[in-house]
């Protein structure tokens, strides 16, 4: 019998080297502690923690979430303990982990982002993700993520100040996401992650009230997956920097779809709520898909979608 070649799940996102391509999506995994009670979170490729701002944020009033067909709306309002709170309460635990730590940051000005990025670099986090696309809070980044000039300035200025790998998280709430992907690449972002939630809304027709207090919220979960896969595919044909794909991934098949569309790594968000061990099952599932398909390195799957027409 032929000797089985070992399956290689390692991916290099520029300087950021992961043991496997599966990470968590910001805001769905807290700061790691909660899910560490369910499984060994060191097995993950990386952990992306809930967004951090300079000052603590209280977030939105409740109800903050509601379920929609195959998805959910959320308007958490970026509740977080702020930079100091993060350093004191969350970082010590994260430091004990044997996986990569990526901190999602958000601010109201370029200076906020610079201060946060520098602080994260100084404590040795593995990468910083710029949340320029969270659609929930009026000032919480929407201008950066959907306005090309502010977007470009932000990435350029943060890039000048830090060496830590930078991930720019793209908002899907734009007409042409490729345009933003290209600006991110040209402004020095090491990679892009997409998609953040799609702005949505739901009304209880009995009470005639919006089903979340903020009225609008971000749609996530399987409902948004086809949109996300399309956007990953479009971006992968536009930029050369690595792409972290997300939006509705709950199974290994979902994750593989994103990789075939052009993602080098994937993140699981709402899927963690449905199954706390989703990420681990996805890692296993990717491995068994690779062995069935006779693929030894997961990198060979990135962008390996077969098109009907070559010109595509």
């Amino acid at each position: 019998m032929a000797k089985k070649t070992p399956i290689n799940l390692r991916v290099n996102l520029g300087k950021l080297k992961l043991k496997n391509p599966v990470m968590t999506a910001s805001g769905t995994f807290g700061y790691g502690k909660e899910y560490s009670e369910f499984f060994d979170i060191n097995k993950l490729g990386a952990i992306v923690v809930k967004g951090i701002s300079l000052k603590p944020m209280k977030g939105n009033p409740s109800p903050r979430i509601c379920e929609t067909p195959s998805g959910m709306l959320n308007a958490i309002g970026l509740q977080n303990p702020g930079l100091k709170g993060f350093m004191k309460q969350q970082l010590p635990f994260l430091k004990t982990l044997k996986t990569k730590i990526i901190v999602n940051i958000l601010g109201n000005s370029v200076d906020d982002y610079i201060e946060l990025a520098e602080a994260m670099e100084s404590v040795g986090v593995d990468a910083v993700e710029l949340n320029v696309s969270c659609p929930n809070v009026k000032k919480g980044g929407i201008a950066f993520g959907t306005e090309p000039f502010a977007f470009e300035e932000l990435i350029t200025e943060v890039r000048k100040r830090v060496k830590v790998p930078l991930i720019t998280k793209l908002s899907p709430n734009v007409t042409d996401i490729k345009q933003f992907a290209k600006i991110a690449e040209d402004s020095g972002s090491d990679m892009i992650s997409l998609i953040n939630t799609i702005t949505g809304m739901s009304i209880d027709i009995r009470t005639r009230r919006p089903r979340i207090a903020n009225i609008t919220g971000g749609l996530s979960g399987p409902a948004i997956k086809p949109v996300a896969v399309r956007m990953v595919w479009e971006c992968s044909r536009t930029v050369k920097i690595p792409i972290i794909g997300m939006g509705g991934i709950i199974s290994p098949e979902d994750a593989i779809e994103f990789i075939l569309a052009g993602a080098s790594a994937v993140a699981v968000g709402t899927g963690n709520f449905i199954n706390p061990a989703a990420t681990i099952e996805i890692i296993k599932g990717i491995k068994s898909y690779m062995s069935t398909e006779g693929i030894t390195s997961v990198n060979d799957l990135t962008g390996a979608m077969r098109c009907l027409k070559d010109r595509l």
């Binding site: 805001g27 769905t28 899910y35 369910f38 809930k50 977030g59 979430i65 959320n74 963690n272």
Partner: peptide, 14 residues
Amino acid sequence: KHMACGVGTCLGCV
């Protein structure tokens, strides 16, 4: 409260 994760990560139920 309406809940999504039930384990403290989504901050939906505050």
